[in-house]
Design a binder for these strands. Structure first.
Lengths: 227, 227
DNA sequence: CAAATATAATAGTATTACTATCATAACTGC
DNA sequence: GCAGTTATGATAGTAATACTATTATATTTG
């Protein structure tokens, strides 16, 4: 995909941070190194103490930006969803054919990020790996209802809504556009994870093309547009 | 679904426990109360200490059966997959039509367990809730590769293989039978969870019929058997 | 009945996930 | 260029978690 606009900002629900990490160098450093560390250690072994050491600041400083590591994960995943929505919007802009719009969206969703892009301190490649392995832990909690009520998942909803529009554009009668959209998003991660780690339960190998072929076939036939 | 056979045993990979919990009353009590507690508290807040209190035994006793709570979760999910495979096998036995076999399998997968069934100390209703909210945490870890190598996910693989056979029976040319099977299993959980907790990203309400309709349509059209 | 095994009772340890306090540095308004 | 505010650093402390270890007492088995 083409480079993104340098001065673009991804909007994150402000309930997710104590102090906007985008408002200071230290904040950006916290986000930057949290991505590197979570990718390296996994979310369970990641701690604010280790993050403090990585950025050369005491643990307590991290707490001035994020209440806890769960909220930090929500922040990172929200950033990713916002970024992906932007990618989808870009990939479908000026495309007349609904079919083509949906195909481009599927590609945007399933494409593995190969290199660091433009958002300065955010390493999109590693962030995508985090989202694949850790993002579902951000909502599979006992606090889900109150957190959803508080708008913690707004970025995800926005993305699903955008995809819903594209799906309904292609087949306005289809009764499950949102379900299809969220299935696409989540299953993409799961299948990539299975392909890399539990190959016995998927036919997906390592190339993106397998995943894309699977989801294109699934989506278009479900919508009665036999691909 | 009809009652299951009383004297049936679900086989669990023995790497998942230190001592077979099925071999003693205390072991069964541990499993029984772990289901109740995890369902109540969520996996993050569940501890062996609390479990010890629930069964009136010291924490250290629990450790004699399970190395840690992660392995206990793997044990419980393996049990569930084994049980579901049994349900699928039963629901497709003596059915000639591949189409009908697949439809029955989808129903078996998506059916919400309404009441406690036959396996004495296991509360299937609560176990299913646990599987919906917690099971993905059992594989989304940094230890996945070695654990997969050690056979921790054998029960899941068996189930996917069985579904693969049914899918390939209907359309032997379809290139992604395992991917479709695992997508079905995982997406069913996610969509149920979304329906209950993040309704904005799904069209699924609370009845099983929505989920079943979605997955039937998705599966049959993908396999070129327009439902 | 002896020996092995299972469980209970209790203690201890490193780490985690915070919270609190105080000092100092840096920026802001006037 | 100084006063006041705000951000960060340095350090300490605490309850809970995830274990490990030890010893005593039941219970089962040969």
């Amino acid at each position: 995909m083409q480079r993104l606009l340098g001065n673009l900002r991804i909007q994150i629900p402000e309930q997710l941070y104590v102090k906007d990490p985008d408002s200071s160098d230290l904040g950006k450093k916290i986000v930057e190194h949290s991505i590197l560390l979570i990718e390296e250690l996994g979310f369970e072994s990641f701690t604010f103490k280790k993050l403090g050491i990585a950025i050369g600041s005491p643990e307590s400083t991290v707490y001035r930006y994020f209440e806890n590591k769960h909220k930090l994960l929500l922040y990172l995943t929200s950033w990713y969803w916002g970024w992906l929505e932007y990618k989808v919007a870009f990939a479908t802009a000026n495309i007349k054919s609904c079919e083509q719009q949906l195909e481009n969206s599927i590609r945007a969703i399933c494409e593995t990020v190969e290199e660091d892009q433009d958002f300065s301190h955010i390493n999109e490649e590693k962030l995508q790996k985090i989202v694949i392995s850790e993002s579902s832990k951000a909502f599979l909690t006992k606090e889900i209802d109150s957190e959803n009520k508080n708008g913690y998942f707004q970025s995800y909803k926005n993305l699903v809504e955008r995809l819903e529009g594209i799906i309904s554009g292609l087949n306005p009668q289809y009764p499950f556009p949102k379900t299809l959209a969220s299935t696409l998003l989540e299953s993409n991660h799961l299948q990539k994870f299975f392909g890399a780690h539990i190959p016995g339960i998927t036919d997906i190998a390592h190339s993106d093309e397998d995943v894309i072929a699977f989801f294109k076939s699934m989506t278009f036939s479900t919508l009665n547009y036999g691909s």
